[in-house]
Design a protein around this nucleic acid. Structure first.
Lengths: 215, 215
DNA sequence: ACATATTTCTATGTCCGACATAAATTTATG
DNA sequence: CATAAATTTATGTCGGACATAGAAATATGT
């Protein structure tokens, strides 16, 4: 009953999960997502098909492992920002930082990965779903901070605008990656786009959700 | 070779297509999208399964028939607006008009239809895809009007903001429909939300894409 | 009107992801 | 060490997407 056990079981589960994920990622990048079956992954990882399915209920989740960080990224940035900073300002800052370090969470993933996604309708659809969840999480963060009532739509509007911009920036990163541009080149272009986008948004949301000094 | 033939064949194709679509829609509303198989639709329409597949390559297309109008709606509004009107102003006007007439294109579809969509992951995913295509079509319309070069991101940014708002309004319509609110009630709430959303956008895009008087 | 060509529909079968179930194996606990 | 719990495996079903060949209906030219 006590949870202080070493968790040999937990350890093996993690290993199994990572083993499956690693083989899957390798196969997907080699042959493309839709050309690899779950059976192929199971054979490569030397487990049964059902084990793959148990760990990754959807095949798409085998390829998109960063989903949790991705979905929470915007909401977390807003929640953890410094007093006196507005939500849009925090998101701009965080995005610029992510660009500087070529973070995969905003789409820096290399041509093979980018091609894997765009070549697969299933993965593209799953990515859209993540965009949606990310926007909803952001809306929730904004609403909770504003102490908004159920009828208050403004946090959702702000999240829709900011979410729209982030969707666009992600797509742009993927597009340029597929174009063969290198990370530095993409980063430079993105920096420009961020300015365009957030400067456009500034008059609309610049004063929105400024964190009070009292915290 | 000539295309002037009456098209008895064309006529029958249209009839077959509509026959299949009608039976499918009825079954979906009765039992839910995921509880009806293509075989069920084929049996009800008294055609073979392959015929259903031939007319509707994806099962989702059997349920979402307004896709073409939906995808083109924003781009069309922008292209057909009067001289002197900005793109956001035209979209606000068009949306208010659609609300007034309870247009299904913006989500007025009745509880059964709304439930059919939200209960089905496949349909929800397809709807997201349509949102994306709609935004891309809008971006194209804005870019072509601005005579934008390939590196110009501003039309895409504007489309992302406007697309984000439209996504939100659609979801809100669906949500309220599922909540059991009647069309008049939803229309009233939406009218408010439109004001909030577009007034928020106004300082950002109010002067954007004002159609020149010269046409 | 009839033969021919073209298009459309049907019949059949394969593949694969998702899912359900039960058995077997491994790990934890007293 | 025995028992309980969790994990993995084996097996089978279902449905959507797709490929292919053949049948049926329609159009076209003489």
């Amino acid at each position: 009953m006590s949870t202080q056990t070493t968790g040999l079981r937990e350890l093996k589960k993690q290993q199994t999960r990572e083993n499956i994920s690693d083989h899957a990622t390798r196969l997907f990048l080699e042959r493309g997502f839709d050309k690899v079956t779950i059976a192929d992954v199971a054979a490569a990882a030397q487990v049964s098909k059902m084990t793959v399915t148990n760990y990754f209920p959807r095949k798409e989740d085998l390829a998109l492992d960063l989903s949790e960080a991705f979905v929470q990224s915007l909401a977390r940035t807003v929640r953890e920002r410094e007093p006196g900073e507005s939500a849009p300002a925090a998101l701009r800052r965080a995005y610029l930082a992510a660009v500087a370090e070529h973070s995969p969470v905003i789409g820096f993933s290399g041509p093979a990965f980018a091609r894997m996604i765009t070549d697969s309708p299933a993965l593209t659809a799953r990515l859209r779903e993540f965009h949606d969840e990310r926007e909803k999480a952001l809306a929730a963060a904004l609403a909770e901070e504003a102490g908004a009532g159920p009828g208050d739509i403004l946090p959702s509007v702000a999240a829709a605008l900011l979410g729209g911009v982030h969707r666009l920036l992600f797509d742009e990163t993927l597009r340029r990656t597929l174009d063969g541009q290198d990370d530095a080149e993409i980063a430079a272009a993105l920096t420009d786009h961020i300015r365009t986008a957030f400067d456009t948004l500034e008059p609309a949301l610049g004063g929105y959700a400024v964190r009070a000094a009292g915290g």
